[in-house]
Amino acid sequence: MSELLLDRVADDVVTALETGRPPAGEHSRLYEDLGFDSLMLIELVDRLQERRPALGELPLPDMVGGMADIGSLTDLLRTAATAQPQPAPGMEAEGNAA
């Protein structure tokens, strides 16, 4: 089940990056709404890298603060290439607690 979820989220984000439109489930929060845990975050980032090699290396430690929901993750990937400052990190989902 988590494999399906990972694939779906990765698809949604990649589609959004390709079309320039907001991703499906933009406001779905990875932890609170989708039930992600730390291991799933690692898998997700890996899948994104695999599907969009153009994104280059995606170091999770530099991203965890800015990927609370699918929308912010997409924004983060859009700006990553240009290395613009990103929004201040909100409370990290449960990376620490879960």
Partner: peptide, 9 residues
């Protein structure tokens, strides 16, 4: 660092 916004933050 110039290309790592998280580090600058």
């Amino acid at each position: 660092v110039e290309r790592n916004p998280q580090a600058r933050r």
